[in-house]
Computed example of a mutant assay.
Amino acid sequence: MLSNSSLALPLEKGGKAAEHYVGRFAPSPTGPLHFGSLITAVASYCDARAHQGQWVVRIEDTDIPRIFPGSEEHILRCIDAFQFEPDTEIIFQKDRLEIYEQVIAHLHAQGLVYACQCTRKMLGSNHIYQGTCRNLGLPLQDQAIRIKVDAQNICFTDRLQGTHYSNLQQDLGDFVLKRRDGIINYQLAVVVDDYLQGMTHVVRGADLLDNTERQIWLGQVLGYPRLEYMHLPLAMNDQGQKLSKQNMAQALDLSQAAPLLQQALQALHQPAVDLDTPRIMLQQAIAQWDIQHIPHGTALPQIYQ
């Protein structure tokens, strides 16, 4: 097994000890927020508050070329319109690239990452990386950076989806932390920031479920505490596709914040709340919050536009 070596980065302001619930909403600004995004925001907020915990917002924008113009501002307007109340200052990952580079340098010094010159054309259709560059000792500059994985099973029990496990070496192979074009991969940034912000619980969409074993592995290698996960079923359009920016999901109409909030709670099968200001509705939803009512599986049984 690869040796674990903790990177002693300090928790940031607002980070709490592990016994205190800290959750987050972490959208990517590749387009305006849609109804599926709202479901995630509502669930993460209510779950944190129902546990008397903290809720923070993080904008996951390391993939700078894919940032959709105006989408970061739209996210901030949504937080205000739905009257969510983050407990810490909202952070933007594109402002934290030096931190991620520090982590890569630490992992490289421990012999846990390596440069990879393989292109998509070279890899072909095989999604399991065969370790072609693992022992070549290539310089890190202008190459993708991969982390080494072991042949051990990574197991976790999701609060909604049950037990999942993966043998990363057999199922995936060494995975990328930094792309050849210099873009920091989602897997690295999310693990580092969850640790630095003192995160204890992750509530997010089921489309990210298959990332979890990779993130657990990376956190384990870095010596970070393991998190609790809850992956929500996804809202679907009338073609049976998940609501997403790629599928042209409709942007949230902020003038309809209260009825949209009511619909999001209905989608999560939570007890009804009275139509009021979003703040009052959220208070009622938190008092009634029960994840046992949330549908299991990876898709919601009803269709939402």
Rank of each mutant, 00 (worst) to 15 (best):
Y186A: 11
I147A: 02
V149M: 07
Q161T: 06
Y186T: 09
I183V: 15
N185V: 05
T163Q: 15
S125T: 12
V202G: 05
G198R: 02
V149A: 07
R214Y: 04
M199L: 12
Q197K: 01
Y186I: 07
D193G: 02
L168M: 08
I154T: 12
Q169F: 08
I128Q: 12
V202K: 05
R146W: 08
R134N: 09
W217N: 01
Q152L: 11
W217A: 04
L138V: 01
I147W: 00
T200R: 05
P139G: 10
A151Y: 13
N153V: 11
D194I: 00
H127Y: 13
Y186G: 03
R180N: 15
N135S: 13
F156Q: 06
G124V: 09
L140S: 11
A151I: 01
E213S: 15
L136T: 09
Y129S: 08
L209C: 06
V192K: 02
C155Q: 15
L218H: 00
I216K: 00
T163H: 11
R214S: 09
N135Y: 12
D210V: 00
G219P: 10
L160C: 03
Q143T: 02
L172H: 10
L209Q: 04
N126W: 11
N135T: 13
N135V: 05
F156L: 09
A144N: 10
L218N: 02
L218W: 00
D171L: 09
V190F: 03
N135H: 15
N135I: 06
Q143H: 14
S125N: 15
L160R: 00
S166F: 02
S125Q: 14
Q161W: 05
G198K: 02
N185S: 14
G137L: 06
N211S: 15
F175Y: 11
L136P: 02
D142W: 01
Y186C: 11
L188Y: 07
L209W: 04
R179W: 04
S125A: 14
H164T: 09
R159H: 14
L172E: 06
D207N: 06
L168Q: 01
T163P: 09
G137S: 09
D207Q: 00
K178Q: 12
Q141N: 10
V190M: 06
L208F: 06
Q169K: 13
I184L: 08
K178H: 09
L209R: 01
Q143G: 00
T212H: 03
P139Y: 05
L196S: 08
V203D: 01
Q130I: 05
Q169T: 02
D174R: 01
R179Q: 13
E213C: 15
E213Q: 14
R134W: 12
D142H: 13
